[in-house]
Design a binder for these strands. Structure first.
Lengths: 192, 192
DNA sequence: ACCGTATCGAGACAACGTGTCTCTGTCAAA
DNA sequence: TTTGACAGAGACACGTTGTCTCGATACGGT
């Protein structure tokens, strides 16, 4: 069976799915995490309540899916930025600055620790882990070139970067974000 | 009216309140943020449901109160540590390491961004802000002594510290946490 | 163009959580 | 001992949940 499901119907499902995610994001921003119900989401998204249950089993699943979509988009943007730079240090710096800018726009929501707060979900999201791994690999490469300290494992440095740059979530000017990136990078340099 | 409420009754109220907070924390750890109900809390805390409503109006209020209690305890511990050190740099280092250790034990929960995820609550908790201010003031003092960079406002540096050290939330060894503190401190030093 | 089929929206349903109320018993405070 | 706040139980109307059935709609392939 090459194609059981054709194109347009798949497209429609994806559109509905995205509408659900967008609606949920708006409702969360308005009523808070605990103030969102399946009924609200269905009504706001202009679909039947039973239909909504055919897409997601509960609010938590929607929030996780939304989070995954956000992080996946960030991951794509970061990959592109990474492939533009040439040296390991240059690429690292570009990726970290982009990550900070992305974190700013999603102040507090698509946060690193979003999934941690919901049911202790060990699958913290593939996408989230991929971002961590990308930064970790960049750090390891930069360390080999002597631009990043070697006395701390790349994995721990990646955790440090991701958390430190999440501080950009506080609505700040672009200049402040560049200062934050500079400070974070300073922590990465080999100790003299 | 010098003392409308006497001692033992006040004590009892505080005990019940604390029991509610402890019970809620346990339930959140078990069922996740979205899986906790007032009914559960009342039953688990062995009090009547109506009684629970006399203490807190809803789950969100309980979570905020719990968060505040946690951060207040941290604040007290940090104040004590701060007053033990002598030089500004020494005090800063001691406080940051203690903060990292405290953040570790409460992995993901009494996190900096806890309140951000609930209803966008502009009163992010006095206690939380006090922690930020304590670190900010320590940074400003250390900057005056030349131990911390002056090219970034202390307020932004405090945000950087609090977020970076929250990375200790990932369950890690004590050695890893000390490395994290070292990296964070490296980001604070005056650029050479 | 046609018919099988998957999806949709609406309505109905029991079960549960919510927020509020009343009533009774208990215990500390004056 | 009297006053008053508190705890607990039960009851209530209401909203949410998760599931089901129905008829309508539009896509899919032969």
């Amino acid at each position: 069976m090459p194609k059981l499901w054709a194109e347009t119907i798949e497209t429609h499902r994806r559109e509905v799915r995205d509408a659900i995610l967008d609606t949920t994001a708006a409702l969360v921003a308005q009523h808070g995490l605990l103030g969102v119900t399946m009924s609200q989401i269905a009504e706001q998204a202009r679909i039947g309540r039973a239909t909504l249950y055919k897409y997601f089993p509960d609010v938590e699943a929607i929030l996780l899916a939304w989070h995954d979509r956000q992080v996946a988009a960030h991951l794509a943007a970061l990959s592109k930025i990474r492939d533009e730079g040439r040296g390991a240090g240059e690429r690292l710096e570009a990726v970290l600055e982009t990550y900070a800018l992305l974190s700013r726009h999603a102040h507090g929501h698509d946060d690193v620790r979003f999934a941690e707060l919901l049911h202790r979900d060990d699958r913290v999201g593939r996408a989230q882990r991929q971002v961590h791994e990308m930064i970790r690999d960049l750090l390891a490469a930069a360390a080999r070139e002597g631009e990043v300290r070697k006395d701390v494992p790349p994995d721990e440095l990646a955790t440090y970067c991701v958390h430190a740059l999440a501080g950009a979530g506080a609505h700040r000017s672009r200049a402040a974000i560049q200062r934050l990136v500079a400070v974070t990078l300073a922590g990465l340099r080999p100790p003299g």
